[in-house]
C-alpha cells in the first residue's frame, strides 16, 4: 500500500460507489429480516436494523445506512441518525442480549443529524444512553466502519469488543470542513485540517483505537465488493468464535479495558 495523504483518504471515503450497509448485508447475512421503530416515537431509516443468520448463527445487525441515490439518501438522512434511531438501536441491542445473539454494527455517518427535531427529542441523551448501554451489554459486539465515522453519532455504535475500519474509512471528531471552519474560520482549508486531525484508519490503528484495517481493492470499488465481503466474513467468523467462547465477565472486563486505556493517564 502506497502512503497516502489524509485528504486523499477523506475523498476516497466519500466516493459514491463505496459499499453501503444495504449492499453488504445481503452478502454477509442470510435471511435478513428488517425490524423497525423505537417503540416511542418513530422509525429512523438512517439506521437499518434487523436480524438474520451469519453462517448459520443468528445475529443482530445495526447499520447506519446511507442511500444509493438522492431519493434514498433523503429518506435515510444520509445515514445521520435521529434520537429515535439510537433508541431503535438500543432496543434491538437489548433484544440481542436477551436472546443471546451477537451484534454486528456497521458505522457509516458524517455524524448525528443536526436538526430541530433531533434536539427536541434528546439527541445528546440518546447518544449518551447508547454509549452507556453498549459498555455493559452482555453479548459480543463487532463494529465495522465502512466509510465515515463522524463524531458522537458514530461513536454511539462503536462501543464494542472488536472495532475495524475499511482501509479508506475515516473516523473523526467532526468533518475536516467543520474543523477548518472552527479553527481558521475557513472551510476551504479542509485538506490541511484532515492532515492535522489524524483521522485515517491507519492513524486510529497506530493509536490502538481500532483492532484492524480491512484492505480495499487497489483499483477501487468499481470492481465490486466480493473481496471486502470475504474479509469481513473472515473477521466475523474468527471473532464470533473467540468472543463467543469467553465467559460473560471476561468479555465485559475486556470491553471495559479496551475503552478505559484510551488516551493519556494521570
Amino acid at each position: 500500500m502506497s502512503p497516502q495523504k489524509a485528504w486523499d483518504r477523506v475523498q476516497a471515503a466519500r466516493q459514491p460507489n463505496r459499499p453501503k450497509a444495504m449492499d453488504l448485508i445481503p452478502y454477509l447475512i442470510d435471511h435478513f429480516i428488517e425490524l423497525s421503530g423505537d417503540r416511542h416515537y418513530g422509525d429512523d431509516q438512517a439506521l437499518l436494523g434487523g436480524l438474520g443468520s451469519f453462517e448459520g448463527q443468528p445475529i443482530t445487525i445495526l447499520a447506519q445506512s446511507k442511500g444509493r441515490d438522492l431519493q434514498e439518501n433523503m429518506s435515510r438522512h444520509f445515514g445521520m441518525m435521529h434520537p429515535e434511531g439510537y433508541r431503535k438501536a438500543m432496543r434491538l441491542a437489548k433484544q440481542a442480549e436477551k436472546f443471546k445473539r451477537p451484534i454486528l454494527c456497521l458505522v457509516d455517518t458524517a455524524g448525528a443529524y443536526p436538526g430541530l427535531g433531533a434536539e427536541e427529542r434528546g439527541q445528546a441523551e440518546a447518544i449518551a444512553a447508547s454509549l452507556k448501554l453498549f459498555a455493559t451489554l452482555k453479548t459480543p459486539v463487532i463494529t465495522v466502519v465502512l466509510s465515515e465515522g463522524g463524531s458522537g453519532g458514530a461513536l454511539a455504535l462503536s462501543v464494542c469488543d472488536k472495532l475495524y475500519m475499511l482501509e479508506n474509512a475515516i473516523y473523526s471528531i467532526l468533518s475536516p470542513e467543520g474543523f477548518a471552519s472552527i479553527l481558521w474560520k475557513d472551510e476551504s482549508r479542509a485538506a490541511e485540517a484532515a492532515e492535522l486531525m489524524e483521522c485515517t484508519a491507519q492513524d486510529l490503528y497506530a493509536k490502538k483505537l481500532i483492532d484492524g484495517i480491512i484492505p480495499e481493492p487497489a483499483q477501487g470499488f468499481a470492481s465490486g465488493i466480493p473481496d471486502v465481503v470475504a474479509q469481513i466474513k473472515d473477521l466475523l467468523r474468527q471473532d464470533l468464535n473467540t468472543l463467543g467462547s469467553l465467559k460473560e465477565t471476561v468479555l465485559l472486563d475486556r470491553r471495559y479495558a479496551k475503552y478505559r486505556q484510551i488516551g493519556a493517564r494521570v
Binding site: 452507556k132 455493559t136 463524531s151 471528531i173 475503552y259 478505559r260
Partner: peptide, 22 residues
C-alpha cells in the same frame, strides 16, 4: 470534545460512559 486532541478526545465519551455504566 476538544478539537486539538482529535479522535482521542472523542473516545473519552465512550470511556466516561463506560465507567458510569459500572
Amino acid at each position: 470534545a476538544r478539537m486539538q486532541e482529535g479522535v482521542l478526545s472523542l473516545f473519552q465519551m465512550a470511556k466516561t460512559s463506560a465507567a458510569l455504566a459500572r
